[in-house]
Design a protein around this nucleic acid. Structure first.
Length: 301
DNA sequence: AGCCAGGCAAGTG
DNA sequence: CACTTGCATGGC
């Protein structure tokens, strides 16, 4: 086992591991106590969270776990995980500098005060895609449960420190799963979407490379080549996996926030409303503002 | 019991 | 293009 410890003070703007991993951006980390990301649960503050890296065609799966304790970020893994951890949690993002570029608003100030150190994640593409295809009309805790079930059922296993862990399934494996098998895991009408999108990725007919590098709005359109991906899911994958920090997913919570706090941004269509809110949030880092507002609204009583 | 949850696909006008 | 309808499932 390799391990390390980094002072939180090295990350500009700090870090809040629980808020980052339990705010519904990523469904690839599991808390050691198994509790499923319930809102209002503060007990994850110093808990271990683990994820499995790899599990794909070449190379073996690796296990990584992290916890935040005494102003330090501690990690243990089957490999030297420090650089990967920095990428996955975007530890190089300078939060004060980012918020310098986002216009002040009382709601945003409250959200920042509640969760300083909340960071956007950078998830691997295929697991992120599947997670957000599953997210349609679904609560955060259940989305997390679905991804856990997919890994348990179809993911490669890896042993670490006396425990068995499951990688997220490969596109090839999910493409081979039947719709009924996926429905048995509670995916409901999303089951065929997941299977067909897995086929597209496995066959190379549609991949992340078709999206990377495009301008934001073109990228959002290109994402919709995948099945089960509309504007909203596209924005989530662009923001949480492909590094489009300007993406502003409009879900029911954000729609409520628009009605209550930004009524002038309501333009009647996703594209126009999204653009208006993106400009309201200063453009290039608008997704950061969105994620703070989403987590704050969803977790305050 | 009904409503809601990080919506989308397919069909119609 | 905009608008409507059907779609699984579990928690409150």
């Amino acid at each position: 086992m390799e391990s390390g410890s980094i002072a939180i003070g090295e990350f500009a703007g700090g870090l809040d591991v629980q808020a980052t991993l339990e705010s519904g951006q990523t469904f690839l980390w599991r808390r050691e106590d198994g509790r499923a990301y319930e809102t209002g649960d503060a007990s994850g503050g110093s808990a271990w969270y683990h994820t499995v890296v790899g599990g794909h065609t070449d190379g073996e799966s690796e296990v990584l776990r992290v916890r935040q304790r005494d102003d330090r970020l501690e990690w243990e893994a089957t490999f030297d995980a420090e650089s990967l951890l920095g990428e996955r949690l975007r530890l190089d993002d300078d939060l004060p500098a980012i918020f310098e570029r986002i216009p002040d608003h009382p709601l945003l100030a409250d959200a920042r005060e509640s969760y300083p150190g909340l960071r956007i994640v950078n998830d691997p593409f295929f697991p992120c895609l599947v997670s957000f295809i599953c997210s349609a009309q679904m609560r955060v805790g259940r989305i997390h449960g679905m991804q856990t079930a997919l890994a348990r059922e179809f993911g490669e296993t890896v042993e670490f420190d006396g425990e068995t862990y499951h990688a997220f399934p490969t596109p090839e494996r999910l493409a081979r799963a039947t719709e009924d098998e996926l429905r048995e895991l509670g995916l409901g009408y999303r089951a065929p979407y997941v299977r067909r999108s897995a086929e597209l990725v496995a066959s190379g007919e549609a991949t992340a490379d078709d999206v990377r590098g495009l301008d934001y709005e073109d990228a959002r359109d290109a994402m919709q080549a995948f099945v089960g991906v509309g504007d909203k899911v596209a924005d989530c994958v662009l923001l949480f996996s492909l590094g489009y920090l300007e993406a502003v997913p409009l879900d029911t919570w954000i729609q409520t926030a628009i009605a209550e706090h930004y009524p002038h941004c309501e333009k009647g269509s996703y594209a126009e409303t999204s653009r208006a809110l993106r400009e309201e949030f200063g453009g290039e880092f608008a997704g950061y503002a969105q994620t703070y507002v989403f987590h704050y609204l969803r977790t305050r009583g």
